[in-house]
């Protein structure tokens, strides 16, 4: 009985994950420019990958395979932003202008009220 419930749950998770993966890939085709496509790609990396991997973990049970699947997720979590940031920065540097509805870049940034200098923060060791 318990096994059947776990089986059904992992089924649902895997199918949902597959759905979000295809949606993200379709979004990469539909979006009009590079930066908006990056948002679609991050749906694959976060929601799609998580649901699929958790579904696989339910199948594997409490084993070393599950531990490795956790590492796959952590890999996405630590590498995804690094790659996305490098890509966005390189594209802006190369002069790819994002398609924008509203540009607030020239405005004084809000937030961080108690600290207002724009100097680089020195590492404290």
């Amino acid at each position: 009985m318990m096994e059947q419930i776990v089986d059904i749950a992992s089924w649902i998770l895997i199918v949902l994950g597959s759905f979000f993966i295809i949606t993200g890939a379709a979004g990469m085709l539909r979006m009009p420019d590079l930066f908006t496509r990056m948002h679609a790609a991050s749906v694959i990396e976060t929601l799609g990958a998580t649901l699929l991997v958790v579904g696989l973990m339910l199948q594997a049970g409490f084993t070393l395979v599950s531990a490795k699947l956790v590492f796959v997720l952590l890999l996405f979590f630590f590498i995804g932003p690094v790659a996305a940031h490098a890509l966005a920065q390189a594209a802006l540097h190369a002069g790819v202008e994002p398609m924008l509805d509203e540009d607030r870049r020239n405005r004084e940034p809000p937030g961080g009220a108690e600290k207002n200098e724009t100097d680089p923060v020195e590492p404290k060791t």
Binding site: I21, G24, A25, M28, L34, R37, M38, A41, I44, E45, G48, A49, L52, V53, L56, L69, V72, L75, F76, G80, A83, L87, A90, A91, A94, V96
Partner: peptide, 23 residues
């Protein structure tokens, strides 16, 4: 159309390949 779109696509294919290998 730009090279960065292709790099983004290559990266996404890499992500999908990891998931495919797991599956």
């Amino acid at each position: 159309p730009t090279v960065f779109d292709r790099v983004l696509a290559a990266n996404a294919i890499g992500t999908l390949a990891i998931l495919l290998l797991a599956a």
